[in-house]
Nucleic acid binder design. Sequence first.
DNA 1: TCGCTATTTTGACATATATCAAGTCAAACG
DNA 2: CGTTTGACTTGATATATGTCAAAATAGCGA
Lengths: 207, 207
Amino acid sequence: MARLEELSNQKRSFATGDYLYRSGDRFKSLHAIRSGSFKTRVLHEDGREQVTGFLMAGEIVGLEAISTDIHTCEALAMEDTEVCELPYAKLAELSREIPSLQRHLHKIMSREIVRDQGIMLLLGSMRAEERLAAFLLNLSQRNAIHGMSATQLRLRMSRMEIGSYLGLKLETVSRAFSHFQDEGLIQVKARAVDILALHRLREMVGK
Amino acid sequence: MARLEELSNQKRSFATGDYLYRSGDRFKSLHAIRSGSFKTRVLHEDGREQVTGFLMAGEIVGLEAISTDIHTCEALAMEDTEVCELPYAKLAELSREIPSLQRHLHKIMSREIVRDQGIMLLLGSMRAEERLAAFLLNLSQRNAIHGMSATQLRLRMSRMEIGSYLGLKLETVSRAFSHFQDEGLIQVKARAVDILALHRLREMVGK
DNA sequence: TCGCTATTTTGACATATATCAAGTCAAACG
DNA sequence: CGTTTGACTTGATATATGTCAAAATAGCGA
């Protein structure tokens, strides 16, 4: 990451709701999130939408567009957010010269594939509460990576967005939160979630 | 693809049910399918499994393992299948020398991300029959790419495998097939499917 | 070809989640 | 402060899909 950011010539800032890119936009650069977060979503002709990811600081946005040079999903800031622009042409050129950068780029793309397959597993074979547990554990883990609390989460997304991501309706998400709270697994107050029993959440998703 | 295959030094053959690799195996090479097909699946600790893809001739298997050098899913042949081994180290080296190969490799990985996000959309926001329609259209399209019929499909996978891939139970898949047949959309005879009304299937998935 | 086994279809019924409809709550604003 | 607005929660009910069980069919080895 450090190496990636060094080659960035440009930084950009976004406010909540701003688009980093939209579906159909021409692809030129990847973006590394320095602070803040984005959600990505794909839109269906008939208006349905699916949130495909919530991206945090340190993560790379836009990988899906390399395949066709056109963005196939859109990315919106969920709070004040700053990114480094990583022009793809430059990245490609440099990664031809620096094997470790090449390796790193490959890993980032491959990791995105692994992540997506994990979500496929979640959407294809888990029940509502298991999905939410997996979601919370994932946020917890990524929070911890950034040196933040693994148990105190401040959700940046609405119940509806969580529902879209998890393939559930917002009411179902809300009920699952309430149920977790009744069970003493978490403490919920709107978008502030305190995880009281990490281990029991882990048991729920089978690990 | 042609360029990729040229650099393959080794070909391997598989019979139905043979593993190309298993979860946990060390990653060394990608594999290009010359003929036949694989299914890939991820396993959950508690025994649940999710089929993450059905791969055909011309497609590349193993991309998910680049991220950690360990395979996170497994690939099984669904029929007699031949692959070209593409040693990753060699591929990386060559793609540093040949920009067009580098570009191609990036596109292959990015395309896999796009594919996975399409499946997330399917699993997260489509109903059972829409999923099956999307699945059949996808097979039809890939069949056509290989110069085969876009309407006469010979499924290599069971109803259960289709169900796992689509996040449905096998009975639901079977019922959807039967219903499509009653509606005159397709003609089903076990694993031989004849699409009678491509356009109506397309309408179902909204395009 | 016969018979065995696995796969697929179909039916009756159960259930998880969606839908519809009020409520509640909290932040934002005049 | 009271009002408005959007987000969230909760309840009652509907529905799509899952579950269980049996029958039909297809594929396969002897």
